[in-house]
Design a protein around this nucleic acid. Structure first.
Lengths: 147, 147
DNA sequence: TGACAATACGTGTATATGCACGTATGCTGG
DNA sequence: CCAGCATACGTGCATATACACGTATTGTCA
C-alpha cells in the first residue's frame, strides 16, 4: 500500500499550491497587459524593462539585473530584441571592459511616453478587480519574499 | 517638450505595475519550489502538471489545458519531457483520432507520492510570509480576472 | 451524400527564465 | 611584478509560454 497520494492530498496540492496559483495569475495578467500594449508592438516585460532602464540612466548590466531581481543572463537576452529595435543601447565600459553598460535611447524614451496611456489604462482595469487593501497587503508581503 | 515621461510617472510604473510585481513574485517563488523539488529532479510546474493529470485520470489534452488555464500548445510541449521520462503517457483516442489522451503512469504516481513531503515543506515555508486573509482574498480576486 | 463548418492538434517563431560552464579582464598580496 | 583570486560576461542547454498558421478529422445540413 501507500503507493499513491490520496485524492485528498492531490486536491490539497491542486487547490492550495501557491506556486501554481501565482503562475496562473501571471499568465492571465500578462495576457491582459500584452494585449493592451500590442498596439505599440511591445510586451509588458519589455515595457517594464525600458522604464527601469530609463529610471537608472546608464547602468551596468549586472546592476540593472539586481535591481529587477532578474538573472543576469536573462536580462542580457531580454535586452536583445530591444537593442535590435534601437530602444536600448549597450556598450562596453571604457574604465572596465568587462562591464556592459545599458542605456535607453531617445526612441526608447519616446516609446515609453507613447505607451504610457495604454499601460495606465490596463493597470487601472486589472487593479479594479483588487480592492486596495488586498493589493497593498499583497505588495507588502511580496517584499518579504525577497529576504 | 513632452518628449519624455516625468520621473514621477516612471516611478509610478516601476513601483505599482501589477504585472511587474506578480512576475517578480513568481520568479522568487518558482526558485524556491524548484530548489525544494530538485532532489526529485522535477520542477514545480511539472509537479503541478503531474498532480492535475493524476486527479483527472485519462483526459483529452485540450480539456487538461483548459483545466489548468494553459494554452493547448504550451501544455503539449510541457508534457514532452515528462513523457520522455515515462511519468506521463499520451496516445490518440480510438473514438476520435484527433484527440490526444493524457494519463499519468505508475512511475508518475510514485513520483508525486515521493515528492509530496518536499512540496508540503516548501509550501509551508513560502506561505508563512502571507497572512491567510490576504492570500484568500487574492485568490478570490484573481478568479474574477478570468471573466 | 458531399461541401462546409467546427474541432483538435502539431510546428514555426519569438520571448522569458535560469543554471552550468567557460573566458576575459581587473585586482591584490607575496 | 605576477600568480592567483574575484568579477563580469557570453553561450549552451532546458524548460515555460503563447500566437499564427496549416493539416487532419469529425460532424452537419441541404
Amino acid at each position: 500500500m501507500n503507493q499513491r497520494l490520496s485524492q485528498a492530498q492531490k486536491r490539497e496540492i491542486a487547490q492550495s499550491c501557491i506556486h501554481a496559483h501565482l503562475k496562473q495569475a501571471v499568465r492571465l495578467v500578462t495576457q491582459q497587459f500584452d494585449a493592451a500594449l500590442s498596439a505599440m508592438d511591445i510586451r509588458a516585460t519589455q515595457y517594464n524593462l525600458l522604464v527601469a532602464s530609463s529610471l537608472m540612466g546608464t547602468v551596468p548590466l549586472t546592476v540593472l539585473a539586481d535591481e529587477l531581481g532578474l538573472d543576469r543572463t536573462t536580462l542580457s537576452r531580454n535586452l536583445k530584441p530591444l537593442e535590435t529595435r534601437h530602444l536600448i543601447h549597450t556598450y562596453l565600459s571604457d574604465q572596465d571592459s568587462r562591464v556592459r553598460l545599458v542605456e535607453i535611447t531617445t526612441e526608447g524614451e519616446r516609446l515609453i511616453l507613447d505607451a504610457y496611456p495604454l499601460w495606465k489604462s490596463i493597470q487601472k482595469e486589472v487593479t479594479k478587480v483588487f480592492d486596495d487593501e488586498t493589493y497593498k497587503s499583497l505588495l507588502n508581503q511580496l517584499e518579504q519574499l525577497q529576504s
